[in-house]
């Protein structure tokens, strides 16, 4: 089976600094790839390179290739706006837009020109259910998304991403500010979502990667140290540095 995403010698520079130093890997469809590594290992830069979000920052340059379904994301034919519609992203801090819960979820579909009220209503319920948020907010869909708790906000962000029906979902330390119960909810949602989506989960919590991901990639100082099935990475890593990190000797 061809991989969903092929990354070849991906390099990202900020100013003159090379943040991501030639990463190559494949992401299989309908799996969860966990990306782990200490702070400053360029996990987030890698993630943001997949949907060209890095280029919104000043002085950023990208080299190498990222193929999604065989199409080069950095090729001249690729429109970043169209790309970002196929690739969803959930950020480290929950960022509801200053809109109602309902309008947060339909923000993306409305951009795509969906006007039909029944369709939007159905989508809102489906996505909020998939994010395990529906029961908590179904009576106040018109209320502000900013008034939810942190854990609810992050699930709202997940639902908002799902509403785009993305093929690929990128999560950037989505649980870093959340309590264990909210974290469990999100992990549960992810395990169901991989049936229909391919997921990349960047996390600074190695235990979360061990629990939630099928494959794990270990990044260090902007390089990919090793990648493999999660079980093997955590029990029998081939690189000494991976072993040191997953056993908690540093990071």
């Amino acid at each position: 089976m061809t991989p969903k995403v092929e990354v070849r010698d991906l390099r990202v520079f900020f100013g003159g600094e090379e943040a991501l130093r030639g990463v190559s890997l494949d992401i299989a469809a309908n799996r969860i790839l966990g990306v782990i590594g200490p702070a400053g290992s360029a996990k987030t830069t890698f993630l943001r390179a997949l949907d060209r979000m890095n280029e919104l920052k000043a002085g950023c340059r990208t080299a190498g290739r990222v193929l999604v379904d065989g199409e080069d994301v950095y090729g001249p034919a690729c429109d970043p706006v169209a790309l970002r519609k196929r690739v969803g992203m959930v950020f480290a801090m929950p960022v509801p837009l200053p809109l109602s819960i309902y309008e947060n979820v339909v923000y993306g579909p409305r951009l795509n020109g969906v006007r039909n009220k029944a369709e939007l209503d159905g989508l809102v319920e489906e996505c909020l259910r998939a994010a395990f948020l529906w029961d908590e907010v179904k009576d106040r869909l018109g209320g502000s998304g900013l008034k939810l708790s942190g854990g609810q906000q992050q699930r709202l962000c997940l639902a908002r991403t799902l509403a785009m029906r993305p093929e690929l979902i990128l999560l950037d330390e989505p649980c870093s500010g959340l309590d264990p119960i909210s974290t469990a909810r999100i992990e549960e949602a992810l395990s169901l979502l991989k049936e229909r989506h391919t997921i990349v989960l960047v996390t600074n919590n190695t235990k979360q990667a061990a629990r939630a991901s099928d494959e794990t990639a270990f990044f260090l100082m902007g390089e990919l140290v090793e990648m493999g099935p999660t079980g093997r990475i955590f029990t029998n890593p081939s690189d000494k540095r991976t072993e040191d990190y997953v056993t908690g000797r540093f990071g």
Partner: peptide, 27 residues
Amino acid sequence: VPQSWREVSMSLGATRWETVRKVVLPN
């Protein structure tokens, strides 16, 4: 207007102008 709102809007496939119109200017 917080930068993160722009990022979210763009990550959902909005163009710069759609982001300005729907998120930045109202706020």
